[in-house]
Design a protein around this nucleic acid. Structure first.
Lengths: 207, 207
DNA sequence: AGATTAACATGACATTTGTCATAATATATG
DNA sequence: CATATATTATGACAAATGTCATGTTAATCT
């Protein structure tokens, strides 16, 4: 299993090399220090796995990965990140990187490389939970648990569209005062303060 | 590293056991044949990793995973699937499963277990590309095209959280009247009527 | 220096909003 | 039938909101 290591920080790069070479299956066949190194080394050596830092001068790991994958779609690239609250995760997934793990997780790097080598994708720690689809997980909002009736839900939906009380009243054939009362009750039930918070609640919790 | 194996098919379960036990770091400390086994074995043994088939009679691997994770949120569960075009992937991610790989990928299972044991998440083959996020284009809202300055964007974001003028004023060290004026200008620029519409705009177009 | 502009503030005002007490009507339930 | 209960409505009131004209200060430009 031939691996290339690319990291801005010489010390980190050497530490990684030591860790990887302690495993008999792995051979470190190249080392670089920035994204441009990564691209040229990759083309020259065509390793089994490219282990690369994300934040580097000259060319970021993300850009290097993009360039490499555009030419070698099956490239197995494992990116290293420093913090788990990393916003690059979606970009990395879009580019087609095979892994994205925390640099600090020394023990995890070897198994991650092996898994990537086998064609799997690996994501460190909390990183998976940062993927937006999952955050906007339906959250299974339950109207019953808030004791909201059908009409109240109608009204909430309209507030969530930015409608005024008068507009809501007209569309439901109610008086404006009635709508005001409904909203007052809804705010009480949901422990909210005003219609703006209700709109925010609707859009973030009920959609 | 203590692992439980749960698979509908006795033969597969035994094969897996043989593969895993060939690795000196792994100890198979339990075997089951359906979701209910998985739940009871998990509670009894509390293994480091639970390796489980998805499709099983009595109780599916997905349901079992859900039940286990609701009680043990840190449970490391690796699900096995037969086909890579598997639609359960998003559900699995939402439930909080730590891995989802192809049963056929015999060579990949051991590294996958080790990576999961280290706290990483592993997804086999093409599975990652099935995650819907990747197809969603971000709205790419351009503040400049609406002629909004930095402070206005700050205020919009706070309206989008449901804050009152007073709260916004306090957080930005402005007077309430000033915030009112800012919002009045913002509404004009965005052709909106009130703060609720602004919150809706923010949440749907700017996030 | 004089003029201009940006950032922040005030006060007055109309409107909208949220709360509350109360009540009319219809429907259901005993 | 009598009594709940749900639905809708009113009016009064306070508070928050949005608009507008105007003012202050400090920085910038000519």
């Amino acid at each position: 299993m031939r691996v290339i290591i690319v990291d801005d920080d010489q010390i980190v790069a050497m530490s990684l090399k030591t860790i990887l070479e302690a495993d008999s299956e792995i051979e470190v066949c190249g080392c670089g220090n920035d994204g441009e190194d990564a691209v040229s080394l990759y083309k020259e050596i065509i390793p089994d796995v490219l282990l690369m830092d994300i934040q580097m001068k000259k060319m970021s790991g993300l850009d290097a990965a993009k360039e490499i994958i555009s030419e070698y779609p099956d490239a197995r690239i494992l990116l290293l990140t420093t913090f788990s609250d990393d916003e690059y995760i979606v970009n990395a997934l879009e580019i087609g990187v095979k892994g994205y793990i925390l640099k600090q997780d020394f023990d995890g790097i070897v198994p991650a490389i092996k898994a990537v080598y086998r064609g799997q994708s690996v994501f460190g720690g909390e990183i998976v939970s940062k993927i937006p689809v999952l955050k906007q997980s339906k959250s299974e909002f339950d109207a019953a648990s808030y004791d909201l009736c059908e009409k109240e839900l109608d009204i909430i939906a309209q507030v969530g569209l930015g409608k005024s009380n008068k507009e809501i009243a007209d569309s439901l054939f109610l008086s404006e005062g009635t709508v005001r009362n409904y909203i007052s009750v809804i705010l009480e039930k949901l422990s909210l303060r005003d219609r703006t918070q209700l709109a925010v609640f609707y859009l973030t919790k009920m959609c």
